[in-house]
Amino acid sequence: MSALRVLLVDDEPLALRRLETLFGDIDDVEVIGTASTGDEAEAKIATLRPDLVMLDISMPQKSGIRVAADLASDPRPEIIFVTAFEQYAPDAFEVDAADYLLKPVRFDRLRQAVERARRRRTMRDAIDRLAGTPAGTREEAIWVQIATGNLRLPIAQIEWVEAARDYVLFHTSTRSYIHRISMAALEQLFDPQQLMRVHRSTFIRPALVNGVQRLGKGLIALEMEDGAVVQVGPSYVKIVLDRLSLA
């Protein structure tokens, strides 16, 4: 498998150095360059043709959102936005970002996002076909908005869910989808045997839990198959341990 070629874009030198350090611990990636403005990012994307661009949103000259929106459709690198401001999430997914990371970037979330971007590059045809997936005998999918319209996302594709203000993020193996719905509504929609609530702002798929971290004082976190580490709310700890047969 060839290394994923990555361009890092951020106007803060410390942020760039931190990303370079984190990428040093991720297998099969190669950081091929850096940029500190939107215009420089566009130039380097055109000349270096990276597979993945880690793109800061708030930058001089041209925002990361604008850079991503103006990219040619083919060939187009995968985009992972990095920002200190979560309010940009809806705009980020409007331009088909693979993921959206908040600063300071955690290693587990970066690794998860990179693997998602890697899979997206090899599974685009399969993702395109999701729109034609036939409906089952019960509600088994959610219509989500994407840059080109709407996509029927099978619930079976959702690995975990996290709340983001008035929206939720559906995380799949290849990308995240943003959708406006309440966590309470999702609790009614999801089969708890498939997607269980483990926090007031999180659902997970129990079958994808690889490990449990004991945090002390009765608190735990779940290590997911994709590398994400998900906190379990105090009131959910017992039911989660029971479900995982660890009580």
Rank of each mutant, 00 (worst) to 15 (best):
residue 4 L to Y: 02
residue 9 V to H: 02
residue 15 A to H: 14
residue 20 E to F: 12
residue 23 F to K: 13
residue 27 D to A: 07
residue 28 D to K: 14
residue 31 V to G: 15
residue 32 I to S: 06
residue 38 G to Y: 12
residue 38 G to I: 12
residue 42 E to C: 13
residue 42 E to T: 14
residue 44 K to I: 04
residue 45 I to T: 04
residue 46 A to T: 14
residue 49 R to I: 11
residue 51 D to K: 15
residue 51 D to F: 13
residue 54 M to F: 13
residue 67 V to Q: 08
residue 69 A to K: 15
residue 77 P to D: 12
residue 78 E to S: 15
residue 81 F to A: 12
residue 83 T to S: 14
residue 87 Q to D: 14
residue 92 A to C: 11
residue 94 E to S: 08
residue 96 D to P: 14
residue 97 A to G: 10
residue 100 Y to S: 00
residue 103 K to M: 05
residue 103 K to T: 06
residue 108 D to G: 05
residue 111 R to Q: 09
residue 111 R to I: 01
residue 115 E to T: 01
residue 117 A to P: 03
residue 121 R to K: 10
residue 123 M to K: 13
residue 124 R to H: 07
residue 124 R to P: 09
residue 125 D to R: 15
residue 133 T to V: 15
residue 133 T to E: 15
residue 136 G to Y: 08
residue 140 E to M: 08
residue 141 A to T: 01
residue 142 I to A: 00
residue 146 I to M: 07
residue 148 T to D: 15
residue 149 G to L: 09
residue 149 G to W: 02
residue 152 R to H: 10
residue 153 L to E: 04
residue 155 I to H: 00
residue 156 A to S: 12
residue 157 Q to R: 08
residue 163 A to T: 14
residue 163 A to R: 12
residue 170 F to A: 02
residue 170 F to M: 05
residue 171 H to D: 06
residue 174 T to M: 10
residue 174 T to D: 10
residue 180 R to K: 11
residue 180 R to G: 03
residue 185 A to P: 00
residue 187 E to N: 02
residue 187 E to F: 00
residue 189 L to C: 01
residue 191 D to P: 03
residue 192 P to I: 05
residue 192 P to N: 08
residue 194 Q to S: 11
residue 194 Q to L: 04
residue 195 L to I: 00
residue 197 R to M: 01
residue 199 H to T: 02
residue 201 S to A: 13
residue 205 R to F: 02
residue 206 P to I: 05
residue 208 L to H: 02
residue 208 L to W: 00
residue 212 V to E: 10
residue 215 L to D: 08
residue 216 G to A: 03
residue 216 G to M: 05
residue 217 K to D: 04
residue 218 G to T: 05
residue 218 G to V: 06
residue 219 L to G: 00
residue 220 I to D: 09
residue 222 L to G: 04
residue 224 M to T: 12
residue 236 Y to H: 12
residue 240 V to I: 09
residue 247 A to W: 00
